[in-house]
Write a protein that binds this DNA or RNA. Structure first.
Lengths: 202, 202
DNA sequence: GAACTCTAATACAGTGTTGTATCTGAGTAC
DNA sequence: GTACTCAGATACAACACTGTATTAGAGTTC
């Protein structure tokens, strides 16, 4: 099939996006530190020239990558936030959240890598922290709405509960990825359900 | 001061231990992948010869390191298990557990690195998984005792609850390390307390 | 104390990675 | 269609890391 003739801008955007996709793949596979610029551009089908003409550094690319994913996830959360919220929905949504947070294993690994990198790189940490807080506030807002709807007082500040929720889901996911089969997805979701129900429907 | 004249075995053990300590330091600081054998032996005050005469590979050393820490942690848990358990203790112990799991930030980072490595290295994963399950079973046993003492049915299998507990604590810790000041230790502990109380004292 | 045996140092060869400096060719403007 | 410009390829020089093969020297055995 005939390849469309691209304008300069289209071509550049395509390269940029392909580099991001390749980076996601390689970083998830080998880890951020072990993923060389060479690996990434090879996976994308370019040479190192393309990389340095698009990004300042590997960390720079990684932030672009995370930023993109973060926007997608927030859009999904926004949908939950915008939809009229009923009590039944809430319970359903929370238990579904476990499955939704990271759209797939790859993205989960990317964020785990990112958090580890953040422990060491202050600039990176600042960036990641901002994303993390945005997400927390989105969730806190949902929780707040829930308790308002229910007419009861939340047992802790909604923001803290949101933090707890994220932590629990992330932790669960982490254990489950690195120790597969020990805990079935059903068991994980059930346990999450127990904890959440206890906390939110006490 | 006069340095004691060491036997061959003492000397070897000393080297081994110093390499482990150095590795813990360097890996926590730079990450497993970025920590070169060279870095580790330099930190320990040796040359590469010492490394290859003690370990097969970097992963080999890392496992030895984790194994050592795991044993220490289990011993601490064992103390909780052995002590006569009262209801008041239980609540206290759970909230204290948050502080105890990882003896310090360094050890926490090491295990996070390990879990990430486990995602990619099957042999390593098997090893880590075994440790993880031992820990889970210790905790499950404590939880089981608790519900027996209380005379109520646990809301989910104790092993799953143990998994949930570990996941929550780990997740919380992870967020707190990479986003310091956002959530004070007090707030974290309070939130944990709320969730645990709701789940266990429902 | 002489011969022996390990632990750890040293030397070395090979490979992978980085960033820059320069070049090329396809898109663009006139 | 000619000159221009920018995305990306290529070439290069420096360096870091790995693992093995060999060596030195301190501990051991008799």
């Amino acid at each position: 099939m005939a390849r469309k003739r691209l304008t300069r801008e289209e071509s550049r955007d395509q390269t940029y996006q392909r580099l991001l996709d390749a980076a996601a793949h390689v970083i998830a596979k080998k880890g951020f530190a072990a993923a060389s610029v060479e690996d990434i551009v090879a996976q994308a089908g370019y040479t190192r020239g393309a990389f340095y003409s698009n990004f300042k550094s590997k960390a720079d690319l990684f932030i672009a990558l995370l930023s993109q994913d973060h926007q997608c996830v927030r859009q999904d959360l926004q949908k939950i936030l915008d939809a009229p919220l009923s009590m039944a929905d809430m319970q359903e949504q929370i238990s579904q959240y476990y499955v939704q947070v990271y759209r797939d294993e790859k993205n989960f690994i990317l964020w785990a890598e990112a958090r580890l990198l953040a422990l060491r790189d202050a600039k990176f940490r600042a960036r990641l922290n901002a994303y993390c807080l945005e997400k927390r506030d989105d969730i806190a807002h949902i929780i707040e709405q829930f308790f308002k709807l229910r007419g009861t007082e939340p047992p802790a500040p909604p923001k803290d509960l949101a933090f707890g929720t994220m932590a629990l889901v992330d932790g669960m996911r982490f254990f489950n990825e690195s120790a597969p089969k020990e805990l079935t997805d059903e068991a994980a979701q059930h346990t999450l359900g127990v904890i959440f129900n206890a906390t939110f429907f006490k």
